[in-house]
Structures are given as C-alpha cells and as structure tokens.
Write a protein that binds this DNA or RNA. Structure first.
Lengths: 198, 198
DNA sequence: TTTATGACTTACCACTTGGTAAGTTGTCAA
DNA sequence: TTGACAACTTACCAAGTGGTAAGTCATAAA
C-alpha cells in the first residue's frame, strides 16, 4: 500500500499548522493524526516519536528560508537591490506563510531548545549575509559589524513581530486598519533603514 | 496561620517565570508548586485553577506596563521628550524584566486567547498613546494615523523581538557580541525613527 | 472556650499523554 | 507463489494532567 507517501507530507503539513498555532506542548500527536482521520499510532509509524515529527516541521521552515537567500546569491543585481530584494522576499514569506513566522517566534522563545541540533541555525547564515550586505551598502556611514547587525535585527524583529500579530491586531483595531498598516509596513521599514539611499 | 500571604505572591512570581520560559502548556501546576516545596493542592487552594493563576500573572504584566505610561502622563516635558522617555522606559522594562517580554510575545502568539477578557488589552491604550504622540512630534511629515501606528509597531516589534532573543543570540554569536548590540540597540532605534529631529 | 477561617496535606479520580507490542492487509519484486 | 515490506489498526500501559473531597492544624475573633 504505497498510496500515501502523501500521508507523511500531509502529517507534516498539519503538524506545521498546529505547532505554529498552539505550540509544541499545546498539541498532542493524537490531535495531529486525528485531523487526517488516522490513529496516532500511524503517525508514530511514520516518524518514530513526537520530537522527530517536530524536527521535520522545523526542517521545512529552515529549507524555505534558506531558499530565499540562495535565490539571490548569484544574481547580477547591485548589492543594494540584492539587499532589498532579499528583505522583500522575506517579508512576503513571513506574511503569506504566517505559520513559518509563528514557528520561528516560538523557537526563539524556547531557550532550552527541544532540538538543539543543526537545523535551528539556519538563522545564522541569514543574519550574517544580511549584515555583510548592509555594510557594503551603507558606505558613507562605515558601520561596525555590531552596528550593522543591530540594524538588521531591528528590521527582522519588526517584520516577524508584525507577521505574528495579525489576529491580535485585527481583533484590536479591525480588519480595515490592519490592511492599511500591512500595505504601508514594508515600504515604511525600507524607508526608515535606507538612510544611505542614493 | 497567616504567615504566608507571601506564598501567594511567591506562587505568582514562580508561575510568572515558568510560564514565560515554557509556556502555559509547558508548565504543570505541580511544577510551580514544587518549586516552593508545596503541593499542587495548596496552589489550587490559593487560585482555584490553573487559568486563574495564569490570569494573575498576566495582570502583573499589564500593571507594570500600565504604570510606565502613567508615570509620564502629566509631566511637563515636551511631547518629544515624553515620547522618547516612554520608549526608553519600555525598552528598559523589557530588557530587565525579560519574563514580561516573553509573556507578551507568547500572548501575541495565542490567537485563541486563553483569557479573552480585559487585561489582554493593556496594549491598546499603550499603542494609541504612542501613536498620538508620534503624530504630534513629526509635524513636518504629517503622518496619517495608519502611518504613525506602523512606525510605532515597528519600534515595539524590534524591541520585543530583541528582548526575547537574548539566549539565542548569546549562544549564536557569543556574550560579547550580544552585549555590544545591546548597548547600541536603543540609540540606534531612536536614531532611525527620529527623522524629524530638530 | 468555642467557633470560624485560612493555609495547608493526604487520598483520590477520570482523563490525556507519549509510547510499545503485536497483529492485519494490500502491493510489489523474486 | 512466496516473502518482504510499508501502512496501517487494535490493544495496552505507565506516567502525568487538572481537579475534587475531606481532613488537619494553627491563629484570631466572639
């Protein structure tokens, strides 16, 4: 019965959504399996245990974000274009795949990392690449690497924070206001941090 | 035996820490009580149930942040000073009381709010006050309220994100780098968003 | 001195949790 | 046709969950 390699990917998808919304401890493997009308033992058959499933979910996040930076690696654009293009894709990714944004935030909150291993550090090359780029762009200012990193982290923080705030902001200020802000958000960020614009 | 009204506040303190670090579902009431050498039934005696204890913890966060804005309400400073002063206190609060920062972030992630009620909305007057202030400050630009709000939310997002990132960043780049960034962070934020500086 | 009350404890309880063990059943390669 | 294997299921289970019930014991008010 090979009908469903689908099942495995479907499980990861469901797990992705549920972990993002409710957190690792807020979701039972029975919940996840149940969403697909399977028993939890079927899930365990595919992944061995809960942590491994969670690991697969994180792997997905890691891959998607890794691809963004790679997609811009060799392109012949100017550094400046490359920088803003990466940022833009990042913004898009976070706001269309809110589950990814939520999972990243949740991982950041977990200081005793459940999965200490490799895949958590997809963030690092990301941060380093962007830090390097912003230094090359802001030639007039000659940013130290700490200053450059600080700037990057503020941008990323603002983006990620906004991406996860969507339900709260909608409830608090209404859908209309939220949409207005969403439209403005990226350009305003760009404007704020593009001090050296030529 | 009235020795310990302390116990009650001690429980809230411990719960505050644990909920912030591990999330609502990641902590059992037995864990919390155990930290003080009490049985969980003693805890239940004081708070009735887990959610009510959690509510008390949130109340604390709400109060502390509410005080910040109140402390600056009547002061005779200029709007600009008032604005940056509030922001600064906020930054301090988030970075000295990391548990508060973590709890706020966790609450933001919870879209099916455990405690739908009042205290969640302490954020709202906060956001509105700051939005109003920034509009009064940036007279040259004449920001729409959506633009002003966007700006505020970026600042708050950057701050909160950074505050919860501390263990991750320390592990990723070392304590030294982290301290460098921490020193720069607020001034750089201020600089970025103080476009209308006179 | 009684009575009430607050701060607990011990004893339970039903339910949920992640996980193991041992099947069953359909498919495909030898 | 057989035998392996993948994709499940049913049957369990020990440990932990939040919560109830019923007591113990010290203090303070009547």
């Amino acid at each position: 019965m090979k009908k469903d390699t689908n099942t495995k990917t479907a499980l990861i998808e469901v797990a992705h959504k549920l972990f993002a919304d409710r957190g690792y401890d807020g979701v039972s493997i029975a919940d996840i399996a149940g969403e697909l009308g399977i028993t939890k033992q079927a899930l365990l058959h595919h992944f061995g245990n809960k942590e491994k499933l969670y690991g697969k979910v994180l792997e997905g996040v890691s891959d998607r974000f890794g691809e963004i930076i790679q997609a811009h690696e060799g392109k012949g654009d100017t550094k400046r274009e490359q920088f803003f293009s990466i940022l833009h894709d990042l913004y898009e990714q976070m706001n269309t795949q809110k589950h990814d944004a939520r999972l990243i935030m949740r991982e950041l909150l977990e200081n005793q990392p459940r999965i200490e291993s490799k895949q958590k550090w997809y963030l690092r090359p990301f941060l380093e690449k962007l830090t390097e780029l912003i230094r090359e762009i802001t030639v007039k200012e000659q940013l130290s690497s700490a200053e450059a990193f600080t700037r990057i982290y503020q941008i990323l923080g603002a983006m990620n924070y906004f991406a996860i705030s969507d339900p709260t902001l909608k409830k608090m200020f209404g859908k209309q206001t939220y949409n207005d802000v969403e439209q403005l958000f990226f350009n305003q960020l760009k404007q704020m941090y593009a001090l050296d614009e030529q």
